[in-house]
Structures are given as C-alpha cells and as structure tokens.
Amino acid sequence: MNRREENKEFKGATQYVLDDELAKIVNISMALEMPLLLKGEPGTGKTMLAHSIAENLKMPLIVLNVKSSMKLVEALYQYDTLTRLNDSRFGDSKRDVSNIEEYIKMGKIGQAFTSDTRTVLLIDEIDKADTDFQDDMLDVLDQMEFDIIEIDKTIRAKNRPVFIITSNAKKNLSDPFLGRCNFHHIAFPDPKMMRKIIDVHFPDIDSMLTDNAIETFYRLRELDRVEKKPATRELINWIRALGADPDFKPKKLAKGEVPFLGVLFKKSEDYGLAMQSVNRRRMF
C-alpha cells in the first residue's frame, strides 16, 4: 500500500493490510526507539501487525504471550534449579554443577536482548498480567538491561528490539508505563477495508462470495446483546469454511441462510441469539 524507497521502513506485508496512518506510527516509534502500544477490539490485527513487521523488515520475531499469573522474571530468564538438583544428585550430564550460569535459560525478553540481530519483540496482551508486571518492566524498558541475581550478571540489549505491545483493555495500564510507550488504537475495519483484507487472504476468491459474506458478517455484528462479536479472524475462518463446503453457493447467503454459524459465534448464548435472528430472517 504505502510504497517508500528506504530499506528499514515498514511498508506492510503479504498477509496484512496496512493503512497509511499505522505505517507512519510504526516507523516513528522505531525511529524514536519507543515501544508501540496497540489497543483495539480483539480481531483487529494487533498481533498480526508484529508478525508483518518482522516479515517485512526481515527480523526474527519473538513472541511473549503474557499470562495472568506471569511475573516479569519469567520473561527475562529462568534459573533451572530442578535440572541442577538432578545433575548434582545423579551427575550424569556434561554440565558443570558448580557453574550456575549453565542453568540459566533466557526468557523471551532475554532472548531478544541477547540476539545478535535486531528482533521484533511482541508482548501480547500485557493487560492480562498484574500491574506489577508493567511496573517491573519500566526499568527494563528504560535501561535496556536486567540483572540475573543468581550469578550477579547484567544482561544488556545487544540490539534494541522493536517492541510491540498489545492490550485488550482488560485492565487499565498504569500511567508511568503509558508514558514510555507510543500509543495507537486500531479501529474495527469498515466494510471497504475488510474487502481488502479478504482479498489479501484469498487472492482468487469469487467476488460475489466476498460481497455476500461481508454483508452477512456486518449484519451479524450489529446484533444486540452479543457478548463476543465476531471479528476479522472469525470472518476469515468462516470464509475458509464456506469455501471448503462443496454444496455451498454464495446465493444462499443472499437468501439469508448462514451456514457454519458456530465459526462466527463461539459462546453458546451468542450462538443462540444469532441462530434466532437468522431463522427469523429466513421466515420472511
């Protein structure tokens, strides 16, 4: 979409439709060496963006999936005490038990710091973890280094990774943390944009199918009281499902039939609601 000549600039990737605004934001964050925090509804491509940056700039991608009980240390490094104990009792490995460093394993952030090339580090859904996690991360982001207490060694980032952080707004992020990030909110794509996205994923799709599928999709998204609205990911899977069904014809969608509703709605109550509305429509 956005064609520029410079090499180290992000221009979108094969599986990702990038808008101009977002491209600018990614580039400026990289130039300023600041982490980019992305918010937005699930399924708007926050995670995909990191993948496409890595693909586009030919950097390795390291993904840190944040879990609710996660402590930052786990993301930095792990001291594998169990193996060390095992080695010390049974002594059947080549490792030197008295050298603790041999039992230190780098976590995802550690890997990104010690990597010989610049990496893209995706910290996915940071809001899942406690606020402690963000607070602890401030230092790491500021200093670009962390200490391994067990061996009293400081790990410095050889190359500053490109930080992409995503949040689904489950919890509010703390102000000091926000202060260190650049921020962008990805809005849900409008039908036009959605068409482009579909075209990227299914280059030789029947245009009538796309039209009808997108129309049905946006109609179903309008349903009231649905807790988890179907997002881009669901739409893509759904189109894949439709394409895999030999009996399916795009005309059916126009008539109001919606096969494979379960691909779009994954909560049983939502499914029920959608089912009702589809059936009601078909009767007219």
Binding site: K24, I28, F183
Partner: peptide, 21 residues
C-alpha cells in the same frame, strides 16, 4: 530528528506520542 515533514506526519506522530488512550 526530521521525522516529521508535513502536517499529516505531525498529526499522526503527535497523537501517537502525546495521547495515551
């Protein structure tokens, strides 16, 4: 640093840098 060269650039950049929500 010369990263912002037009008013459009300024719009996106200043928003992403200044506004955090």
């Amino acid at each position: 640093k010369g990263l912002i060269n037009s008013i459009d650039d300024f719009y996106t950049s200043s928003r992403t840098i200044l506004v955090k929500g």
